[in-house]
Design a protein around this nucleic acid. Structure first.
Length: 208
DNA sequence: CCGCGGATCTTCT
DNA sequence: GAAGATCCGCGGA
């Protein structure tokens, strides 16, 4: 790949240290790159097509669906640090979920990355998800994208903004088409808050 | 096509 | 002890 991709500028910390919903929305169309250590697999990359924002307050109300709402625990500590780091956790004892920390240090916000359109490392993705037959579905859904991209707890806390980091986010051309905003998936509290953003016509989103 | 159960981590009640 | 920011395979209709 991917001189063409990794040559694009890495998003700076100032991109992430803003209002969480703004960060979420503006991540659409950006390129996520996973570069494992030498001999640990090929570079994988995908275009971000679906995200969710988890905030401290939404229109003055606590976001009880956010992990950070429970406070600063061993699992959530990275969310309270500076923006532009990876927050990774295991759901239901099975699947890893990748989030980007937003907001300045001391404020808790993060963006769940829910779907990517595969760009590079597709053969590796297929090996990791042999049951998926459609390339465009390899990274559809938060657990699926972590699996396909080879992302696990070992990347907890990595700085997304450092050149040479195993996980980086890169600038891309402006997105075309409609950006949809709906309620977040699989939660109860604040289920109707429009904090899920996705590219409406994209074939790689987790669900329409 | 739909619904159920399994996998088995973190946190809270 | 239970629920949760999930996904997949199985069985029945």
């Amino acid at each position: 790949m991917s001189k063409a991709i990794t040559a694009r500028p890495i998003l700076p910390r100032s991109f992430f240290e803003r209002d969480t919903a703004t960060v979420a929305r503006q991540l659409l169309g950006k390129i996520l790159v996973h570069q494992p250590p030498p001999r640990r697999g090929p570079v994988c990359a995908g275009r971000i097509v679906e995200v969710e924002a988890y905030v401290q307050l939404y229109q003055g109300e606590r976001d009880r669906a956010a992990h950070a709402d429970r406070g600063n625990t061993p699992r959530t500590r990275v969310i309270f640090g500076p923006g532009g780091h990876a927050y990774i956790y295991l759901v239901y004892g099975m699947h890893y979920c990748l989030n980007f920390v937003a907001e300045p240090e001391g404020q808790a916000g993060c963006v769940l990355i829910r779907a990517l359109e595969p760009i590079a490392g597709i053969e590796a993705m297929r090996r990791r998800r042999p049951s998926e037959t459609q390339v465009q579905r390899l990274c559809a859904g938060p657990g699926n994208l972590a699996k396909a991209m080879g992302i696990d707890q070992g990347l907890y806390g990595v700085d997304l903004t450092a050149a040479g980091s195993p996980l980086t986010v890169h600038e891309c051309d402006r997105v075309n088409g409609t950006i949809a905003a709906t309620g977040r998936v699989g939660i109860r509290h604040g289920a109707d808050w429009p904090l899920r953003f996705y590219l409406a016509e994209n074939k790689s989103i987790s669900r329409p």
